[in-house]
Design a protein around this nucleic acid. Structure first.
Lengths: 152, 152
DNA sequence: CAAGATTGACAAATCAATCTTG
DNA sequence: CAAGATTGATTTGTCAATCTTG
């Protein structure tokens, strides 16, 4: 029940295996050391990097590739923990802004070093800069396909 | 809150984004067209490729990188649908064997073509054979790090 | 009424016991 | 009693309404 060459199959299996392991491995480290999941970390990180520590729910959903529904549940939990707060946009009440609180920023700062260290240990330091760039470009190419395949 | 070069960060973000999108994209296609999730598909595929259409739960868990608990729940559902059956190993009753049923094989055969077509469309055909091999090798390198980082 | 967001019901994954077998 | 496997409770994600705002 196969339609790929042995070579292609091998590469595909490695890629899909990586795609399943990497997020859960990152997730476990974050959960263990800082009590946040990977998506939660990403939300905090994006807010911290944004202007006014604020971002619209829909923008956040797009950037983290999560459904608005999932994000809404997740941000509600973060809000319950005091890491984020929400308020409707003053200019257009249809938008909801998520805002990073001081406590959220503290948690992010505390979590970042170990997280970055793991990313280094697992990915960045496992290959040369040129190889890493090539890997990044390959990932982008596939992502572009995913984007368009939703439409076509 | 950053400790990577702009280049490295860019590559990392593309990789992690791919790692979150690829499984869910594959999953949606399988779910829509064949009513199985990606992990379920993998289980059926591994059984179909194995001797006697049979594999131990623990082996299956290792090969699919899922916890034994998750796999147990999942296989129970598959068993409920008649796609797989389970029985204790005759030689050593501590092991449980999962066995692909004719119905399971039928479903797999029906699901495979579209699945493989999508893998081609998204990944295999988006780059040259050499690039695909390089991508596969990069993935393997990272996977090797994950394996050892569990210990060290 | 369309886009953004939330909600609640349901399905699936995780986690911490527990059970079983050699 | 250790390894394999299962179970039940909790948490998290998904899906299909629903609500709100301009």
């Amino acid at each position: 029940v196969e339609w790929l060459s042995a070579d292609q199959l091998q590469s595909w299996l490695s890629l899909i295996r990586l795609s399943m392991w990497l997020p859960s491995t990152i997730d476990q480290q974050l959960q263990r050391d800082s009590d946040v999941g990977m998506l939660e970390y990403q939300v905090l990180a994006m807010l911290s990097a944004s202007d006014e520590l604020t971002m619209r729910m829909s923008t956040l959903a797009a950037l983290t590739n999560s459904s608005l529904s999932r994000l809404s549940h997740l941000v509600k939990r973060l809000e319950g923990r005091g890491l984020v707060r929400r308020e409707p946009d003053r200019l257009d009440g249809r938008f909801t802004n998520a805002i990073l609180t001081p406590a959220g920023l503290d948690l992010l700062k505390a979590a970042a070093p170990k997280h970055v260290a793991q990313v280094r240990a697992l990915v960045v330091d496992s290959m040369s800069p040129a190889e890493l760039r090539a890997l990044g470009r390959a990932a982008e190419r596939i992502l572009a396909r995913i984007d368009t395949s939703v439409i076509g």
